[in-house]
Design a protein around this nucleic acid. Structure first.
Length: 921
RNA sequence: GGGCGGUUAGCUCAGUUGGUUCAGAGCACCUGGUUUACACCCAGGGGGUCACAGGUUCGAAUCCUGUACCGCCCACCA
């Protein structure tokens, strides 16, 4: 005998133990041999690996709940549903965290050395990595933990190295000196994607550069038309004006450029200008890049600190001059007074010096985007530096085609365009990082011959000259250089392809749009390049979790919500339901971090409702075996047929919404069915058949229907709220001898098929009438303050045409209602004062309340209703009188309008009769 | 500078192809409730000219144009 279930769902007592039992039974594990033997169709998801830097936040909660819903659903559908979990070593992010830890001990990474430092990072990530995986388990994620990866695992490292070498051999990875984004705090290069532009209110400074005496034509040029940015200094020297947002860079200027077609300055091209503060002279060059319309039409060229200037210098054959240290202070290439100054101090100092020399022409406010480091938010400095790059154009071609031809789909579809735009304008990917935490670049430089060796295995000697004086490149690879390979490196590539053959390509890639370029786009490129095939077929991009004010949740703002706290307080089911029910396609989710109760109570309440629906059903059905629906078919009553019909409709809709990632609609459908239809109506209607001295057949029909419906709805709910549903499902009494569609646990129970033969339109119509009637009676009782306990007669048909009623026999369900409550149906004598309502079907509900109601008040109420209804009726009639409407609208729409007009007409007439009868009293 | 998304009840948001699930849900609010599944509940109720202005249409929250705010992404105009 089972122990009684607690009236309130106690999530803490069920969640952990259920999860444990799922693990023990191996439900999450999918082996390639099992797939082959059972001939099941794989469904594979690779997790977007959380960074090992920190505990999970709500964004992870959402991301992983969605994936778990999908994986559980597919598993129940009979697919070999494999979800591969893992974590990302998160190069810069992790290194920063550990460096900060060191900092609190007064140390830097240089104090502990490269080896000591990486050891510290390893011990840090061993802890945090394990915590993250535990958190995923706590929210119910059904991953195949035996396959857990870490992007720095030996296997994945081999994949990284293989890819690097292959790309090198194909000429798709190269080393070169270019302007890259440099973070002066992290002391590393960044990719373009890692430099985030932030709008800033900056200044645009206009600087005067004196034209050398040799440029004798200056006066003539200045006299020409439009050369407004030229002028004479006090000593008569001609100057020109250039503009910049970063005046300190002028110390590294190597030229001033004008557009070759700019007629104003033709005479100056080839002349020299004196670069203030430096004593250097620099040439005036021409270049197409210059926009004659902008500013003076003259641009200062700082090749070492601006990508465009670098390009111009290349074209003009100028040598760049680096003026910054890695920390972004001024180096020895600048004049003495500025050396060693921080870049922003130098900016001030340069401006002061120019001002003093009368060379600062002016300052304007200027709004522009300033790139910041995506990890530490330091202003990024464009810097000339030797780095490794991936040539991306060739990789982008198939990746672009995959989107264009629909091989890979995006949900919501608007991201398709964003993706394609990025692919079309892709720039080479800077993959080297001057960090210690990450995959070391597999390149060795020979001290003797200077050649480099690029190798799959660590070489002991130079591949060119055989010298053993070789040294490995000190840098590591961008952290995304390992995660972009996951769809295949996660399956032992390149070691062996047994798993790969079965599980590649994967299916759904679920993530936030923020990493569309970082990760999704690159995985697609890698998939085509190394597997010759797309790595997945559909990309589902969900929204961002924000706080009540719409701000992204972040540690620094302190507006985050800890998923584990929610799991403890409200349960994993509550967390999951809350997140998914807010997850409309393409929209962000807002949660109030200051009021967890307000945010998560709806989920908790729903889980509790499921619990109680189950509890009541189990209790009232008892433990003796029930019959199948087939067996009780002849005895099914209207309410049974109705709930089965609604169940079927819900089943169909839920499957459809899942297919289309309309997850919040899945929640809505199931909420409405479970709470609205099943709990509020069916359970109430069925009570008398279970407890009272009902006849045995009716009772058995009810029991069968209850168990069947509960079984199915628990299955449908399971992907959303796996814990409460599993706990209940395990206790269902099954029809004797039936093994059909059974399973050991709900998690592997078959997903319900819908079966339109269960639809019963007449039962639905009848029950809807009943619902309307009951609602009308309740409404009247409430309006007239009749206590719920008080018995009151209910008449159908109305005060003026009592003879016409005969409703009782036509509506067996009504009798049942009479039995549940306190309602009796009799043919009214007529002529009584009472409260009434008219149903859409035209049937009138009447409560004789002589002496209880105020006739005047009832008259007023009726008048209001009459005027409202006649207004509506006018509208409908006008519509029907419109020839264009009748002619052009679809026939069924017109028909519906006619029916509406008829029913309004009938209803109105009844109301008027009633009003007249009352008014006459 | 370009592109995209948003503006619906006090709050958070739904509303698929324009026409009975079109004005909705949850929360909050008001009224009543010791109905033996659930007060994390039950019943009833109030509340929105769907940002604004035009347009298309027999018919617009839904399509088009423009405006105003809010947000995001991309961009080498110094």
């Amino acid at each position: 005998m089972a122990e009684p279930l607690s009236p309130r769902l106690d999530h803490t007592s069920i969640e952990a133990s259920l999860y444990q039992s799922w693990m023990e039974k191996g439900y999450f594990e999918v082996s390639r041999t099992a797939v082959a033997e059972q001939g099941r169709d794989p469904y594979v998801i690779i997790i977007p690996p959380p960074n090992v830097t920190a505990v999970l936040h709500m964004g992870h909660g959402l991301n992983n709940t969605i994936q778990d819903v999908l994986i559980r659903w597919r598993r129940m559908q009979g697919r070999a549903a494999l979800w591969v979990p893992g974590t990302d070593h998160a190069g810069i992010a992790t290194q920063n965290v550990v460096e900060r830890q060191l900092g609190s001990e007064g140390l830097t990474r240089f104090d502990v050395g490269r080896e000591g430092f990486t050891e510290r990072v390893w011990s840090f990530v061993d802890k945090t990595g394990a915590t993250i995986l535990d958190q995923l388990k706590a929210i119910g994620c059904s991953c195949d933990w035996d396959r857990t990866f870490f992007t720095l695992d030996p296997g994945l490292s081999r994949a990284v190295r293989e890819v690097f070498v292959q790309l090198f051999e194909k000429g798709l990875v190269y080393r070169g000196e270019y302007i890259i984004n440099w973070c002066p705090r992290c002391l590393t290069a960044l990719s373009n994607e890692e430099a985030e532009g932030e709008d800033a209110d900056g200044k645009l400074y206009h600087l005067r550069y004196p034209i050398d005496a040799s440029g004798a034509g200056a006066a003539e040029v200045a006299a020409g038309k439009g050369a407004t940015a030229m002028g004479q200094l006090e000593d008569g020297t001609w100057y020109l004006t250039v503009s910049t947002t970063r005046p300190e860079t002028m110390l590294g200027d190597m030229a001033v450029a004008v557009h070759p077609g700019d007629e104003r300055y033709q005479g100056l091209i080839g002349a020299d200008v004196g670069l203030p503060l430096t004593g250097r002279s620099i040439p005036i060059i021409s270049d197409d890049f210059v926009d004659p319309e902008f500013g003076s039409g003259m641009v200062k060229v700082t090749p070492a600190h601006d990508p465009n200037d670098f390009d111009m210098a290349q074209r003009a054959g100028l040598t760049p001059m680096d003026i910054l240290t890695p920390e972004a202070s001024m180096n020895e290439n600048v004049p003495e007074p500025f050396r060693g100054m921080d870049r922003f101090d130098a900016r001030t100092a340069v401006l002061e010096a120019l001002e003093a020399a009368g060379l600062l022409a002016g300052v304007d406010d200027h709004q522009h985007a300033v790139p910041h480091c995506y990890r530490c938010h330091t202003v990024v400095e464009p810097r000339l530096s030797e780095q490794w790059f991936v040539r991306t154009k060739p990789l982008a071609e198939p990746a672009l085609a995959a989107s264009r031809d629909g091989t890979i789909t995006f949900t919501p579809p608007r991201w398709k365009k964003v993706y394609e735009h990025w692919m079309e304008n892709i720039r080479d990917w800077c993959i080297s990082r001057q960090l210690w935490w990450g995959h070391r670049i597999p390149v060795w430089y020979c001290e003797d011959c200077g050649e480099m060796s690029v190798a799959r295995e660590d070489p002991t000697a130079c591949q060119a000259c055989g010298s053993d004086a070789i040294e490995q490149d000190p840098d590591v690879l961008d952290t995304w250089f390992s995660s972009w390979l996951l769809p295949f490196s996660g399956f032992n590539w390149p070691e062996d392809d047994a798993d790969l053959k079965v599980f590649y390509p994967t299916h759904t890639l679920t993530t936030a749009p923020e990493i569309l370029f970082f990760w999704v786009a690159r995985m697609i490129m890698a998939g085509y390049e190394f597997m010759g095939e797309a790595p997945f077929t559909e990309v589902y991009l969900h929204g961002t979790v924000r706080d009540r004010l719409g701000r992204k949740m972040s540690k620094s703002l302190g507006n985050g919500i800890d998923p584990l706290e929610v799991v403890e307080k409200f349960g994993a089911d509550a967390l999951r339901y809350t997140l998914i029910s807010a997850c409309a396609v393409g929209t962000d989710i807002r949660l109030d971090h200051e009021d967890l109760e307000a945010s998560f109570a709806p989920g908790r309440n729903f889980a509790n409702k499921i619990w109680n629906v189950g509890r009541f059903t189990l209790m009232s059905v008892g433990e003796s075996p029930v019959r199948t629906i087939g067996e009780v078919e002849p005895h099914l009553e209207t309410a049974d047929r109705w709930i089965l019909s609604r169940l079927d409709e819900t089943t169909e809709r839920v499957s459809d919404r899942l297919e289309r990632f309309r997850l919040h609609e899945v929640c809505e459908e199931l909420y409405r069915f479970l709470w609205g239809d099943f709990a509020d109506w069916y359970l109430e209607l069925v009570k008398p058949r279970l407890f009272a001295d009902a006849d045995a057949e009716s009772r058995e029909a009810a029991r069968a229907t209850l168990v069947f419906t509960l079984d199915r709805v628990l299955r449908l709910l399971h992907p959303l709220v796996p814990f409460v549903t599993s706990e209940l499902w395990a206790r269902l009494p099954w029809p004797e001898g039936s093994t059909e569609e059974r399973a050991e646990d709900l998690i592997v129970a078959p997903w319900p098929d819908f079966d339109p033969t269960r639809r019963d339109a007449s039962a639905v119509a009848e029950l809807e009438d009943l619902q309307q009637l009951i609602t009308a009676v309740r409404s009247l009782r409430k309006e007239y303050g009749i206590p719920e306990k008080a018995e009151v007669d209910v008449y159908l048909g109305g005060v003026n045409d009592v003879r016409r009623v005969g409703v009782e026999s036509q509506r067996p369900a009504l009798r049942r209602m009479a039995r549940i409550g306190t309602l009796e149906f009799e043919i009214p004598e007529g002529g009584t004062v009472g409260a009434s309502a008219v149903l859409n079907s035209g049937v009138e509900v009447f409560l004789p309340l002589e002496g209880l109601i105020d006739v005047t008040r009832e008259c007023e109420r009726l008048e209001g209703e009459i005027s409202r209804l006649s207004g509506q009726l006018d509208g409908v009639r006008k519509k029907l009188a419109n020839e264009k409407f009748v002619g052009r609208a679809p026939a069924d729409v017109v028909e519906k309008e006619r029916a509406k007009a008829d029913s309004f007409g009938v209803k109105l007439e009844k109301l008027r009769e009633k009003h007249a009868a009352l008014a006459g009293r």
